[in-house]
Amino acid sequence: MRDAAPQLARGFVLTLEIAAAGTAGALVVGALGAALRVSQSRPARVAATAFTELFRNTPPLVQIYFLFFALPEIPGIGPALRLPSVVAATIGLILHQGAINVEILRAGLEAVPAGQREAASALGLSRFDQLRYVLVPQAVRISLPALGNNVISLFKNTVLVSSIGVLDLFGAANDTIAQILVSAELFITVGIVYLVCVGLLGALFRALEKRAALAR
């Protein structure tokens, strides 16, 4: 097990990198998608809804396989879409968890009391300013628990990247087992690492929620 440590450590770092990139990407996708979902323009709303429902309701593993194996087979542009495994996996996670974020933020916007929009309108604020200064800040505070859960989901879903050969913590563990065969211990150790990280993320989000509540 000692010998496995360096490879596992490298895998853990990769897990953290993928999780960070994935979380950031998913937030951007979520914010853009939610903005389009409530836009005045019908085509924008339809496109955003289609994207959200498609990527939210299909398994992330299938999405990752599609991006890595099926995209390059598209006649014509296929070869240009041959992605490195890490990239394909991270994009897959961003699309899936991003689509979930769109739904969370949209629900959050809806949960902001109607009187807030009335008051902002009555003051003459433009629609953009209403969203930016009054509605979205409140929507994010309301959505914080759900957003936090999604971040934790994404972190746990990073294990899926190992299915296309990426050597994240889980991939490294499997690779080690193929070489040294100490599976039960290894899985327990790896499991504990994930549990601790999830626990820390959970505590972080609970603290954020407390802070957001004070400001209200």
């Binding site: 009391p113 009187g115 807030q116 009335e118 008051a119 902002a120 309108s121 009555a122 003051l123 003459g124 200064y133 009054v134 800040p137 409140q138 505070r141 400001a215 209200r216």
Partner: peptide, 18 residues
Amino acid sequence: DLRRRVGMVFQQFNLFPH
């Protein structure tokens, strides 16, 4: 143009909580 000329106070106050 209208809303710069007309100010409104609501029953539920509707202050921005954040």
